[in-house]
Write a protein that binds this DNA or RNA. Structure first.
Lengths: 167, 167
DNA sequence: TCCTGATCGTTGGTGACACCAACGTTGGTG
DNA sequence: CACCAACGTTGGTGTCACCAACGATCAGGA
């Protein structure tokens, strides 16, 4: 297929506005498309969250705590696929904002028990709405059936590499 | 929707090996799944390329040049959705490796005409093989029909936001 | 009991990638 | 000529992923 058109012999004044076309080979690569789509997704979601003063990791942490209750930092990192060191910073910021609480674990003094606060839950409600809106923006070009199938394929593709790609 | 299951009352000894489970809410978010999948893709592709001494941007640039012929740096950036400044670095590395050539544009002295070299084309053959292999790894859990549909959905989702999400 | 190894939180660093601001140079236009 | 746009370049910021090391703590076996 594609007998390889001998490279645009067209003059292509280079600067003009035919609109930029990526190399065909890249536009066919699943990994490239995936990276682009993820970039768009991170953009719209990040923007939506930034309007409420948080980043994506903060949102993830708040949800993990809201759903799973108080856990240690290490366990939190395991569930979200986040490195302990990165989590340390995120938790510091969340704690400074009063959205989470860190308290020493009475059963194991190595651990910090982290939990979401009431202000954290309140903030999470706003964030959820913003993120849902961002999802709609992201998936705007897909109909309902396509959205469902898209999500299904992503889940299948990821398989057990959720949440931590690292072995 | 989602009447909010009252948070796992299960004790969950926290440290134990049930395998980390991300919050349900996140596992349903298309943007989150997308980000994860893109991370996995970037991982396998990046690893494959690193074995040949290049990163993903180098691969993109080489392909753009191989398909489109010599172009200016700015036009290259437009086609690939890369910032001029980032491209500057990438081109410097590629030129140092002898895979591309920069020469002043005779018709417009502002521009550099960038083209791929013969060693560049040779390297690209290796890179293509490695990247194809990485795609197979990435899509291993999807059958042929699913892979086609997955790619189609990505293209539809991206719409005209290829290659530059930035307006 | 003591020793050993694993886990915890913390600190500090690296690399890839996206994006932005500014500069001097050059081209095109009024 | 004066002006603005585009070019390549330099230098910076922010997000995210990942890694190495430290002291403190816990659990298990000798």
């Amino acid at each position: 297929m594609t007998p390889a058109p001998p490279a645009t012999p067209a003059p292509t004044p280079d600067g003009m506005g035919v609109q930029p076309v990526p190399p065909r080979r890249l536009a066919e690569l699943p990994s490239w498309l995936l990276s682009r789509a993820a970039g768009v997704g991170a953009g719209v979601v990040g923007e939506a969250l930034a309007a409420h003063g948080v980043r994506r990791h903060h949102f993830s942490v708040l949800h993990a705590l809201a759903e799973g209750g108080a856990v240690s930092q290490a366990e939190l990192g395991r569930r979200l696929g986040l490195d302990r060191s990165d989590l340390h910073v995120v938790l510091g910021e969340l704690e400074a904002s009063g959205l989470v609480e860190r308290s020493p674990d009475v059963h194991d003094r190595r651990r910090n028990s982290v939990d979401i606060t009431e202000p954290g839950r309140a903030r999470l409600v706003e964030l959820d709405a913003a993120v849902d809106s961002a999802q709609r923006t992201l998936l705007a070009r897909l109909d309902d059936a396509e959205r469902a199938e898209f999500r299904r394929l992503l889940v299948v593709l990821l398989g057990d590499s959720i949440p931590a790609p690292a072995e």
